[in-house]
Design a protein around this nucleic acid. Sequence first.
RNA 1: GGGCAAGUGGUCGAGUGGUUAAUGGCACCAGACUGUAAAUCUGGCCGCGAGAGCGUACGAUGGUUCGAAUCCAUCCUUGCCCA
Length: 375
Amino acid sequence: MSEAITYELLHIDKNSGARRGVVHTPHGDIQTPIFMPVGTQATVKSMTPEELKNDVKAQIILANTYHLYLRPGHKLVEEAGGLHKFMNWDKPILTDSGGFQVFSLSKLRKISEEGILFNSHHDGSKHMFTPEKVMEIEEALGADIIMSFDECCPYPSTYEYTKKSMERTTRWAKRCKTAHTTSNQGLFGIIQGGFYKDLRKISAEDLISLDFPGYAIGGISVGEPKKEFLDILRYTTPLMPENKPRYLMGVGTPDYLIESALAGIDMCDCVLPTRLARHGTALTSKGKLVIRNANYERDFGKLDEECDCYTCKNYSRAYIRHLVKTNEILGIRLLSLHNLRFLTRLMENVRDAIEQDNLLGFREEFYKKYGYTII
RNA sequence: GGGCAAGUGGUCGAGUGGUUAAUGGCACCAGACUGUAAAUCUGGCCGCGAGAGCGUACGAUGGUUCGAAUCCAUCCUUGCCCA
């Protein structure tokens, strides 16, 4: 049987080593490197699928196992015909396994070898997540790419704890692979090991021996300094197979996305663009712009002169600020659309730059305008 | 004309003799946000000062008291009721 998920390498940037490729999925191809919007509860907050396709130009989105298991329940989604049909999105979907919730809901869970006992953040009810249970849920949801169940360690964590956790994550990955039954979904393994290189190496090697169709780096971008992030990113990515997609989980900001592509990463996802939007901030080519700030009250210019999105084509900073200040839903929608488009467009530019062997040049130019310094 | 009630910082509204420059909410100002417990959270919000602090403040004026937004008197304003 042929793999549900395959990677095709198109070009390697001669100057940086960054890679330009295509990931083939049952619901179509995705051009890489790519930024993937997050739609935890089977919706990219405030955006319709049409807007994601036509305006944002998203090629794939994420959804979350833990959240959809709690509400509306994976059985219900299955009954609806799977996630694609349920949410009216016919392009690829990736479901995260709930591993991140082990980290973000740390006060509400207990970890054991068997799995994780969660207290629902809605009503406190107890729920046991095991690798087998997570596979059952992700298969019912029906995403193209499904993630194995892992533990995402907080920063900082001790060497001993990180090692124990990483080894358990590897055992869980094996159990996920054993429990995985569908042929139209690709199961990815997640490399852990925190900020310890030897652990990252062991994790990568062990998971590679299990032969997943794709690999992710988990457990970074959890509050560490940028230098440590880059250090682990640059160390870990080369350990990953060249003939399979490489996914960096939870990234990120424009600089992190560019650095990831430079390191050889193919896929990234992040809640940041939609969250920033809901909190009144826009991403622009000249840096973050807190649109609710008073100095934009009478600014009738675009959010970003360089942006081609629907918001920038039609609305002024002053108007968007007014919507945000008056708590109008449209403000959140226009900002979400813009921020998402900003990142998908950034990655379009990154892909073009790789094809022209110029990602390093692109980074320099982008950083200069945005206000970042190269580390 | 008579009776009753009320006037607090941008606003609404607590507070009824002593850590009260005065609880809260809203508004306003700023910051944070990275596999979404997040349209959330944090800080600021009388003036001057980096700060200790100083100076003004609870309708107005005068008084009682060691001490008043809080008690008393008069006045002003507003609302309701009666004529």
